Simulated scan of single mutants.
Amino acid sequence: MNLIFIDSIWFTFMLLPFLIFIARIADVTLDTLRIVFITKGNKIIAPILGFFQILIWLVAITRIMKDLDNITYYLAYAGGFATGNYIGLILEEKFALGIQMIRIVTQKDASSLISNLYEKGLHSTSVEAKSNQGKVHVIYLIVQRKMIQNIISLTNQYNPNAFYSIEDIRSVDVQSERINTKQKKYRHVGSEK
């Protein structure tokens, strides 16, 4: 590379801050995903992401330390951090990794909802219970996270006033036939049998 180009104002105040910004976005995005994989108990992907995340961070911080007087580096670094958090959360939401348990509590008869869930390939456990407002039905499903919105939509079709709670599940015995962990088992809401 030409030394005149490296010493130019354009390189110092535009290109390098932009590269620091991009590096920081990549670093923080990988870190966000790494944390998600750690919470899901993934012992293979989390360390690999951590390796690349820290490598990118070292490159960015090394460049900043060479020129501590340049405020644009600090702004690029901070801006990349904020943007990386945002992008990491969006990617995590798109991937919808993991398994969750959804608990649906309805005061209406739940038999039609349960049979519709079963028709769509979703196995559930249900119990009749009593609340301080009377008789309720509690339905439990363990599903892939990406299936949650469809189940909520289906629940709202049958009972818009149903209460539901969702919990992350770290591990599941996938050998069981009653666990809804395979996306191919699920037919989207409104699809034919």
Rank of each mutant, 00 (worst) to 15 (best):
S131T: 13
Y77D: 14
L75K: 01
I152M: 10
A110G: 14
F95N: 03
G79R: 03
L141E: 14
S153V: 12
N132T: 14
N85E: 05
L58A: 14
D67A: 07
A96G: 00
V138T: 12
T72C: 01
G80M: 12
T72D: 05
N85D: 10
N132E: 03
I71R: 03
M101A: 06
E92V: 03
I151F: 03
E119Y: 07
L68R: 10
K94D: 09
I56V: 12
K108S: 04
L122A: 00
L89C: 07
M147I: 04
T72W: 12
I99Y: 04
Y77L: 11
A129Y: 02
G121Y: 02
V136Y: 06
M147C: 04
Y77C: 11
A129N: 08
T62K: 10
L117W: 09
H123E: 15
I102K: 03
G84F: 02
Q149K: 05
G79A: 04
T62R: 05
V59R: 06
L97D: 06
I56F: 10
V127A: 02
K135M: 13
L154F: 00
G98R: 05
G88R: 09
I102R: 02
L68S: 09
R63C: 10
L141N: 06
G98L: 08
A82Y: 10
N156K: 03
Y118F: 06
Y118W: 04
K135C: 13
I104L: 11
S131F: 02
I90Q: 01
A96V: 02
Y73C: 13
W57C: 15
I142H: 04
L141W: 02
K146S: 00
T83W: 11
S126N: 12
L75M: 01
A110H: 01
V138E: 08
R63K: 09
L89G: 12
I99G: 07
